[in-house]
């Protein structure tokens, strides 16, 4: 940890869209407690512009929080050829579900694929482990 930890990290509001990934799903079937599953789940895919806005580098960890929960995940470049600043993608997992709003407006269907979080650099903090989530 360097001098950076004493500076306040810029915070950015992100709209999260979740998706499925066959590699992550296969890792889950092998073991939900396994390293592979964490590696493939605890990630967020951002627009490169949002990565610089957050003053982080690809591969750094980010704190994601809202009133429902808080997790630390690894930030990756989404690799999409279209710009999607302000929107970020997370694979459906206990990490994304820790942030999904509880209120379903009485419908019984939470907003799994569309919710907001506040993101800021975790300044080297470690990715949240699955056992810390449950």
């Amino acid at each position: 940890m360097g001098f950076g930890q004493f500076l306040s990290a810029p915070e950015t509001k992100l709209r999260i869209v979740t998706y499925r990934d066959v590699f992550q799903d296969s890792a889950k079937v092998a073991s939900i407690f396994g390293e592979d599953y964490e590696k493939l789940s605890a990630v967020i895919k951002l627009d490169p512009q949002d990565i610089s806005k957050l003053s982080i580098k690809e591969g750094d960890t980010l704190i994601l929080k809202n009133s429902f929960g808080k997790v630390i995940v690894k930030a990756l470049n989404s690799g999409y050829d279209h710009s999607h600043t302000g929107t970020a993608y997370m694979v459906n997992s206990p990490w994304s579900n820790a942030l999904v709003p509880e209120d379903s407006g009485g419908t019984g269907v939470p907003d799994f694929k569309d919710f907001e979080v506040l993101a800021s650099s975790a300044k080297g903090g470690k990715v949240t482990g699955i056992k810390e989530i449950i």
Binding site: K28, I32, F68, G69, N92, S93, P94, N97, A98, V100, P101, E102, S104, P110, F112, I133, I134
Partner: peptide, 23 residues
């Protein structure tokens, strides 16, 4: 959410993984 149930049997699913943590 409404705490309307007083016991649970879960088979063939993993709600702690697939539902919002707060629920």
């Amino acid at each position: 959410r409404q705490k309307a149930v007083d016991a649970a049997l879960v088979i063939g699913a993993d709600p702690l993984s697939s539902l919002p943590r707060s629920v």
